[in-house]
Design a protein around this nucleic acid. Structure first.
Lengths: 124, 124
DNA sequence: CATTATACCTTGTATAACAAGGTATAATGT
DNA sequence: ACATTATACCTTGTTATACAAGGTATAATG
């Protein structure tokens, strides 16, 4: 029963829910990448080590919502690859979600920095 | 078709998934609060405006996992209230999840701060 | 011609936030 | 007295999404 690591990673999975959209939009900001290339980029960070089963449906959603474009292209000798890029709508969305993210970071850090017992009111 | 606000708030909902456990543990750090009191505290922050239908099942999970204790207590004339407090396990969990959170903030900020086109390798 | 590597896609499962309801009791209004 | 409101906790059904585990197709290699 290797359960302790499972319990740990369950938090990670839930943390990814909700940040992954932001993460993929940010990764595509100023870049045009195909699926596995994007996946490799995200594997450089502990927080964003996702699998293909997560990435492709996510990209489908982003495309469906008009936030990214998808385009098959053949680069030289390689097999065709589907390249994703931000639309202007996606770029705006990235800005909006990024602001939300900064707000969340601020709020949560405030909570972390103010343990009780105390009113946790408007001090300073 | 009041859809634009709905689309905005969908991101918020998903962002809460995965941060709420951390948030509630942090809120209970050094405090002993009953349900609605905890709810009011969380309503002071934009990111953590949740409802009772979210809070009570969440507290049940935390209790089931041994991270918090729940205790009915009657304070003077008021009706009995269920007071929640961190266990030592919960305190340790808060530390662990807090570290994970800092890692996530660091990773995501790195992604946000490094738009392409660029390898996004080990620069500096 | 079997195997491996690359690249994309699909299905089923589990989790968690939420809206919308519910119960019970104390305080207040008329 | 009795209806209403406020407080406090709880439950059910819906929805979204990350993931494991599978699948398809093609090109290069043994």
């Amino acid at each position: 029963m290797a359960n302790e690591k499972d319990l740990e990673s369950k938090w990670d999975v839930q943390l990814r829910k909700g940040t992954l959209d932001l993460v993929v939009l940010a990764a595509l900001n100023g870049r045009t990448l195909y699926g596995l290339e994007l996946l490799q980029l995200l594997h450089k960070f502990e927080t964003t080590r996702i699998t293909e089963g997560t990435l492709y449906p996510l990209l489908d959603r982003l495309k469906r919502d008009g936030l990214v474009t998808a385009q098959w292209r053949q680069e030289g000798e390689t097999r065709p690859r589907k390249y994703y890029a931000l639309t202007e709508l996606g770029s705006n969305k990235l800005s909006a979600v990024s602001r939300r993210w900064q707000q969340a970071v601020s709020d949560i850090n405030h909570l972390l920095a103010h343990p009780g017992p105390a009113p946790l009111n408007d001090e300073e």
